[in-house]
């Protein structure tokens, strides 16, 4: 044993700061305790209600419901993204007519409940069967899943247009001017200079919109689509067992959390160059 080490162990350290049991700390521990209790309660409930027959019967159904949910949200997000480009363009255009049309579109879809929009498409357009048949669109609107995708796409297009517009407008004017002075034309500037910067700003709102769509997609269960929520309602109606809802909640929660962490991770990756 060396002298130095001996010395070090003899050095008297200052006494550790006693952490006081302040009111906040007591409350905080009580609340965390409450959450833990609720968590234990949930686990014991699920454990007590464990029923292999139930799982055997409904696990495949939940799985197919999950696939329907993800397909619906994925399709709507992609179509919405495509639609959002012209809308965002119109919103930023100096043409009064274009601008106000796009504004009205965005205002309508952001100002009314998605549930009402979905009903409007599903039951509302359903009453125009003859007209839709005549133009050959009935096969599309006949199917509840397509109706869901249609309503969701129009809805998310309005939100995504605003995200896109906000992100593009957040890029300083100097970037445009700089690109112009380098002789890039407008499309090149947009594609090579503006959009890459705008996407960093837009990433988080896009992620949030995706999460909101996953959650909102539960409402298609009301128009006869067997998504995750639809399967849950069916399982509950057949078994009257409340754990069907608990499981659905856990699945939704995991999807949303996974998405949130994924967005965080992507954001950390693409903003590496901004960190000092």
């Amino acid at each position: 044993m060396s002298v130095a080490e001996n010395l070090a162990s003899q050095v008297e350290r200052p006494p550790e700061l006693r952490r006081q049991w302040t009111r906040g700390r007591i409350l905080g521990h009580a609340l965390v305790g409450l959450w833990i209790l609720l968590g234990i309660g949930l686990v014991t409930y699920l454990f007590g209600a464990w029923n292999p027959a139930l799982f055997e019967r409904y696990l495949p159904l939940y799985w197919s419901g999950l696939q329907v949910t993800l397909a619906l949200v994925g399709a709507s997000m992609v179509i919405g993204a495509l639609l959002s480009v012209p809308i965002a363009y119109a919103r930023m255009s100096s043409n009064r007519l274009l601008n106000s049309l796009a504004y009205a579109y965005v205002y309508f879809f952001r100002g009314t409940p998605l549930l009402a929009q979905t009903f409007l498409v599903y039951y509302g357009l359903g009453s125009f069967r003859a007209e839709l048949d005549a133009v050959g669109l009935w096969t599309f609107f006949r199917d509840a899943w397509y109706c869901g995708v249609f309503a969701f796409s129009l809805n998310t297009a309005a939100y995504q247009a605003e995200i896109l517009r906000g992100a593009i407008e957040s890029v300083p004017r100097g970037q445009w001017e700089g690109a112009e002075s380098l002789g890039l034309h407008r499309l090149q500037t947009m594609w090579k200079v503006i959009l890459p910067q705008a996407m960093i700003v837009a990433l988080r709102p896009y992620g949030n919109e995706f999460i909101l769509m996953v959650k909102a997609s539960a409402i298609v269960a009301i128009i006869t689509v067997y998504d995750l929520m639809g399967e849950t309602r069916r399982a509950y109606a057949q078994t009257f067992d409340f754990q069907t809802y608990i499981w659905a909640g856990l699945i939704y929660l995991s999807i949303v959390e996974a998405l949130r962490h994924f967005v965080d991770w992507v954001e950390r990756r693409i903003t590496v160059h901004l960190k000092r």
């Binding site: 302040t22 906040g24 700390r25 409350l27 905080g28 521990h29 609340l31 965390v32 409450l34 959450w35 996953v214 959650k215 909102a216 997609s217 539960a218 409402i219 269960a221 929520m229 849950t232 809802y245 608990i246 659905a248 909640g249 939704y252 929660l253 949303v256 959390e257």
Partner: peptide, 29 residues
């Protein structure tokens, strides 16, 4: 925003749960 970690945790659990569940499901539950 408290300096007490347990309080922060309790708050975060709350928001994680209720922002993660579909509103319709929360309503049914």
């Amino acid at each position: 925003q408290s300096s007490e970690p347990s309080l922060r945790m309790a708050g975060n659990v709350y928001t994680t749960i209720f922002r993660g569940l579909p509103e319709l499901l929360t309503l049914f539950v």
